[in-house]
Amino acid sequence: MDNFATVDARTLPGPAPPDPDPRAVARRGSRTVEGVYRFLLTPRWWGINVFVLLAVPFCVFMGSWQLSRFEGRVQDHRAASEQAAYGRDDAARPLERMLPVDKSTSGRRVTASGRYGEQLLVPGRELDGKRGFYVLTLLRTGSGKALPVVRGWLPGTADAAKAPAPPAGEVTVTGALQASETPGDNGVGAGGGLPAGQTGAISAASLVNLVPYRLYDAWVTLDRADSGMTAVPAVAPNGTGLDLKAFQNLGYTGEWFVFAGFVVFMWFRLLRREVEFQRDAALGLVPQEPGRTPVASG
């Protein structure tokens, strides 16, 4: 027997495999990418894509709208402040020419003539950090209507004995025109049950049952208070201040833009998970789930 070892042909080195064609590799890679993302054309993903395409513009639109509301309130507040400053030096105009009260006329100086009639107190009003009450007197004008006139403010609890009597005879008043108050806004009392001779809000709706006159839907605060009282400064009309509602608009703006970003983030997250699932399923690493068919990768 020869002493030569038997060599298994399978252990002999074979010829090296040929280098892959780069164009073929590129074509297979392209088909793989197309296969992985082919799930975007399934009905399930059509629904997801349509939802995202509708939700994102809607959220952006709502956020922009809320931002415009906030900017509008800021502009109104600036205009009202400028108008109040301008109105103090503006020449007084006849009351009838400045009605009805709106954002352009609120705070402007007006003048009216007549005779004082019924007098009421408006409790629970603060001025310079102190609590007190307004002295409100109805001015009966020649038009047959009565104009509520705030003649001044006094500290302490509302007491008719503290309020000075109005001047007798024909008088001419000059002051800032104000819109009727709404109970519950800007510190205006909303509760009822006040004693006789008192009112919580200065408005025609609140006064119509308290005085026997037809009323203007407006009121005036005098430039100079009567009889040692303190003059009540004019206030900006409702909806023109940087109040809670204005900052709510700013908060809603942020919320809508966050929603838009969240929708986009969730879409990319779902896309990434689906791609990983398709690749793992194509390699047989995960079982096939009902309703999700792995797409061939090449």
Rank of each mutant, 00 (worst) to 15 (best):
F265R: 02
A146V: 08
A26E: 15
R279Y: 01
R44N: 02
R97P: 01
R23C: 03
G63P: 05
A161I: 07
R115S: 11
T172R: 14
A161D: 03
E170Y: 06
P123T: 04
D89C: 05
G254P: 01
L285N: 11
F133Y: 08
P94M: 11
G184M: 09
L136C: 03
R23Y: 15
L250K: 07
V188A: 04
G291E: 08
Y86V: 06
W65H: 02
V264A: 05
P123K: 03
G187C: 05
A260T: 10
F58L: 10
T172N: 10
A165K: 01
P290D: 14
T253P: 00
T182H: 12
Q178M: 15
V25S: 07
A160V: 05
S106K: 00
A79N: 14
H77Y: 15
L120C: 08
L194F: 12
R78C: 05
P17D: 12
L283H: 12
G117T: 06
A179S: 12
A225M: 03
L215Y: 09
V208C: 01
C59N: 13
T137E: 04
E170L: 11
P15V: 14
P100E: 01
M1R: 08
E118P: 06
S106G: 11
L271D: 14
V188C: 08
E255A: 15
G14F: 02
P294N: 00
R78N: 12
A234Y: 02
R224V: 09
L40Q: 04
R44T: 14
G169A: 12
G47C: 11
F4I: 02
G14E: 12
T230F: 08
L242K: 09
V188Q: 06
F259Q: 08
